[in-house]
Simulated scan of single mutants.
Amino acid sequence: MTASQILVLAKEPRPGRVKTRLCPPCTPEQAAGIAAAALADTLDTVSATHVDRRILVVDGEHPAPPGWLTVPQRGGPLDERLAGAFADTRVAGAATVLIGMDTPQITAGRLAAALEQLHTPDGPDAVLGPAADGGWWALGLRDAGDATVLRGIVTSTADTGEHTLTALHRRGLRVAMLPELCDVDTADDARQVAALCPPDSRFALATAVIR
């Protein structure tokens, strides 16, 4: 079977640096707590997924679970950091799926299904998970070297996902689409995502502060 790895691109959940669009109604400390909960739940889910390597690609400092690798983010804009994450963790012959810390509702089954598509001999070269806001929540590549197409794509816009899909197609890749998910930017997003998480999850409990 083809080797596989999952990357989690994350930012140190420090007040004033993360989830600033939650303020108000949250305080910076509450927003950081929600971000920390989302990251913790995401790391738990990836830890429960059958994969050869799990890597935390972090901006700042944050401990990774036992058995994980940690790689610092590099580059300026997000497009450079995304491309850098794939480049800095690339292993020949390994399929790679990158996700962020903003979809704590993700399940191990959904991640495994994405990897399975990349392992299928006649399957796609890439899988892309669109986000409800027009971005994307996951990008999987059979060859991490193809992530160079991310450079120059403006992120955090309503057509980021569309531009990413176009760039992958222009490179000649076969792309399979994953289910659309909502990621957490605003208080309304947080409420919506919390309703999809187990009620005793860190994220669901952390978002109880939102009024």
Rank of each mutant, 00 (worst) to 15 (best):
E116A: 14
L98N: 08
S201V: 07
R110P: 03
L118V: 07
D102P: 01
G33T: 08
L150D: 00
A126W: 01
T166F: 07
R17V: 15
V51Q: 06
T49H: 06
I34F: 02
V149C: 04
Q73G: 05
T70F: 04
A37P: 03
D79V: 06
G172N: 07
I153D: 02
R191K: 15
A195S: 11
A187H: 07
G123V: 08
M1W: 09
L82Y: 03
A94R: 02
G84L: 06
H169Q: 14
P72A: 13
A206L: 12
G161V: 08
T107S: 00
A64I: 09
L141C: 00
S156W: 01
L39F: 08
G60E: 08
R191S: 05
A158T: 14
L43I: 14
I106C: 04
V46M: 09
T160Q: 02
G100Q: 09
T49L: 03
P25Y: 03
T42C: 11
Q30F: 13
A108Q: 06
V46G: 10
P13R: 03
G67P: 02
C23F: 09
V18W: 00
T120W: 14
D159M: 10
Q5E: 12
M101E: 15
K11Q: 13
L43K: 10
L168F: 02
T148V: 15
E61V: 15
G145T: 15
L98P: 04
R170W: 01
Q105A: 11
I34G: 07
I34P: 01
H163M: 13
L141D: 02
L205T: 12
R110Y: 13
R81G: 10
G84F: 01
P77E: 09
P124T: 11
A195P: 06
G33D: 00
A3G: 15
P25K: 01
E80Q: 14
Q5V: 14
A36I: 11
T20W: 04
E116L: 11
L181F: 10
V97C: 01
L118K: 05
P198G: 12
A114V: 00
T70I: 05
D44R: 13
A114P: 04
G75P: 11
V127H: 05
R202A: 09
C182K: 14
G76R: 09
R74C: 11
A132F: 05
V71F: 01
A40F: 08
D159C: 04
A83L: 03
L165G: 05
A38S: 08
D122L: 13
D183F: 12
A95W: 08
A131D: 08
P72I: 02
